[in-house]
Design a protein around this nucleic acid. Structure first.
Lengths: 187, 187
DNA sequence: AGCCTGATGACATGCCATGTCATCACGAGC
DNA sequence: GCTCGTGATGACATGGCATGTCATCAGGCT
C-alpha cells in the first residue's frame, strides 16, 4: 500500500516549501513544484487536495488524537482538566522541539491570505474534534462547543507567543500562563 | 461615486444566493450568476474578490466598528466589560431581527468547505480588530490576543445556539449565559 | 458644449483542479 | 518462474476561476 507514496509525497512537500520560500506562495505554480520533485501535476493532486494543503500535512492526525484522548480520559475529570492534559500531550509530542520548522511554516502561512484561511480551518478542525469528544462524554452541545473553542484559543494564543519568544520556555508553561490570564480576565 | 454600484452589487448578491440555493455553491458558475444579474464576469470580480465573498458582504464593517468601540470605551472599564458592551451593540444592530436571513446564509456556508474556510476568516478578522483595539488601549500583546479570541468565541458559540433555537431568546441573553458557562468551566 | 471620472463590457490569458485512460513496478498465487 | 492483480504514476484533456488591458458609456463639473 505504500510503495512510491512516502517518497513522492515527501519530495513534493520539500520542493513546495523551498519554492514558497524562494518566490512566495502565490508566485509558485504547481507545475514548478512537480518539476522540481520530478513528478507531474496530476500526481501532486493525488497527494494534496490543493496547493495550500502541502503546508499542513504535519498536523493531519491531531484531531482524531484529540477526540480519542478526551473520550479515554477518566470520567471523574473536570473538562478543563481533560483539556489541559490533552494540550500538554499535544505540546510535547507535536510542537516541542520543532520550533524552527514551525516558525518557517508560520512565516509562509502569514504571507498569503489563502494560507491564513486554510490555517484557520485546521484549527477549526481541531476544535470540532474536541467538541465531538465532549459530546461523546455527554456534555450539552453549547457547553462542548464552548470548551472546544476555548481549548483551541488557549493553544493558538500560547503557540503564537511561544514562536515569538527566543528564550527556552516550554509551550505548556505558556499555555498554563494563558489559562491564568483568561481566568483573571473573565472573573 | 456610487452610480451603478449599489444596484449592480445588490443584483449580483441576490442572484448568487438564489443560485446557490437552487444548485449548490460549487455547481454554480460565476457566468451563471452574472447572466442572471444581467452583468458580466469581469464586473462580478470588481465587486467581489472571489466567488465566496458574495456571501459575506453583510459583515464587512464589523471589524472597524469593533476597534473603534473598544478604543472609545471609558478608560476605567475592565476589558471584559468592554467586550460585553461591544457584543451587545453588535448583537442588536447586526444580528437581532435578521435570524432567517442569517440561517439561510449559514446553511449555504455549511454546505461547502471553501465557504466554511472563508467564514472562519471573517470571524478571525473580527478577532484581529478586537485585538488591535486592546493593543491601542495599552494591553500586552498576548493578553489582547486572548481577550479578542475569547470575545469571538463567545459571539460565535452563542450565535450558533441562537440560530439553532426556535424560541425568541435574544442573542445577547445567550451571550451572557455562555459567558457564565465559560466562567464556571475555567474556575 | 465639452471634458473628466468612474463603472461596465469585451477580449484574452494563466493557472488550478479534476476526470479519464494507459503504463509500469511490485507482490501473490499457481 | 510466469501470469495476473493492485496501486501509483504519466499523459492528455477540460472547465472554471481570477485577473490584466482596453474600449465604451453615462453622468457631473466647468
Amino acid at each position: 500500500m505504500v510503495r512510491w507514496q512516502p517518497d513522492a509525497r515527501d519530495r513534493l512537500e520539500r520542493a513546495a516549501i523551498e519554492l514558497f520560500q524562494e518566490q512566495g506562495f502565490a508566485a509558485t505554480t504547481v507545475p514548478e513544484i512537480t518539476a522540481r520533485a520530478g513528478l507531474t501535476t496530476r500526481t501532486f493532486h493525488r497527494h494534496f487536495a490543493d496547493k495550500r494543503e502541502v503546508l499542513f500535512g504535519a498536523v493531519e492526525e491531531m484531531p482524531e488524537l484529540a477526540t480519542r484522548m478526551i473520550i479515554d480520559a477518566p470520567a471523574a475529570q473536570e473538562p478543563m482538566t481533560v483539556i489541559l492534559e490533552g494540550l500538554r500531550m499535544v505540546a510535547v509530542t507535536r510542537f516541542e522541539g520543532r520550533r524552527d520548522d514551525l516558525r518557517l511554516r508560520r512565516e509562509i502561512v502569514r504571507s498569503d491570505a489563502g494560507l491564513r484561511e486554510r490555517n484557520l480551518h485546521k484549527w477549526s478542525t481541531l476544535s470540532e474534534a474536541i467538541r465531538a469528544g465532549f459530546i461523546a462524554r455527554g456534555l450539552p452541545a453549547t457547553r462542548a462547543a464552548l470548551l472546544a473553542e476555548t481549548a483551541v484559543t488557549l493553544l493558538h494564543v500560547s503557540f503564537d507567543e511561544w514562536l515569538d519568544r527566543d528564550d527556552d520556555s516550554s509551550l505548556f508553561q505558556i499555555i498554563e500562563n494563558t489559562r491564568d490570564l483568561l481566568r483573571e480576565a473573565i472573573a
